[in-house]
Design a protein around this nucleic acid. Structure first.
Length: 198
DNA sequence: AGTGTGATTATCT
DNA sequence: GATAATCACACTT
């Protein structure tokens, strides 16, 4: 593991917000596909927007586990979401991977998302990303730092132009005002909501 | 570019 | 029985 990825791993163990910023630029590898992460959000303990706010449950096992596991869940009757568990075992936190830029052949991604017209439509949202990459319950709990894992992280450039905003989709009063969403300004065309800081 | 709404189901109260 | 870390489409400006 190179320095960039090692540094991210250490940050992931102690600061989920800082890690959500640092994850930008890293390479998400799913099977044969590779994509550069361009948008992410932090969810942590004492956060009303976090699924674990009301304590542990079977679904949340990965979030309560050690840092670097895939927390995958299904929502709105339609969409899978892909997260990276953070903070030490017993402390619930996660990074929601919201958008990425394809780095490898996109044929299969288009097959899985027939409505996509351009490469920017493939991974520009957490539900779209999971659909295009084929993420589902079978990926639950996988280790992002295991080089044999079907879902893993590899190194990538450090992103210096990082924009910050409020998290998307939270109800009023559930932490919707926390500035815990980060995206790569230089890749804004591949982000779920590129237009501005808020 | 922005607003509103329906789809559809696992999970928890 | 209510809710949800979304998406796509229709409609307005």
């Amino acid at each position: 593991m190179d320095h960039r990825l090692t540094a991210f791993r250490e940050l992931l163990a102690r600061d989920v917000v800082a890690a959500s910023r640092d994850v930008l630029g890293l390479t998400l590898v799913v099977g044969e596909h590779r994509a550069q992460i361009v948008e992410a959000e932090a969810y942590g303990p004492t956060d009303p927007g976090c699924h674990a706010f009301r304590g542990e449950s079977p679904r949340l096992k990965a979030m309560f586990g050690p840092p670097g596991l895939a927390y995958v869940y299904f929502t709105y009757g339609n969409h899978w979401m892909l997260n990276i568990s953070a903070l030490p075992e017993g402390t619930p936190a996660a990074i929601l991977i919201r958008a990425a830029r394809p780095l490898t052949d996109t044929k299969e991604l288009y097959d899985r998302r027939p409505k996509a017209k351009t490469d920017r439509d493939l991974l520009s949202g957490p539900g779209k990303l999971c659909a295009a990459l084929g993420i589902n319950a079978s990926h639950y709990g996988l280790d992002y730092f295991d080089s044999n894992s079907p879902v893993r992280l590899e190194s990538g450039p450090v992103v210096t132009e990082v924009a910050v905003g409020r998290r998307i989709g939270l109800s009023p009063g559930k932490g919707d005002e926390f500035p815990w969403r980060f995206w790569d300004r230089g890749a804004s065309a591949f982000v779920s909501r590129p237009w501005r800081d808020n």
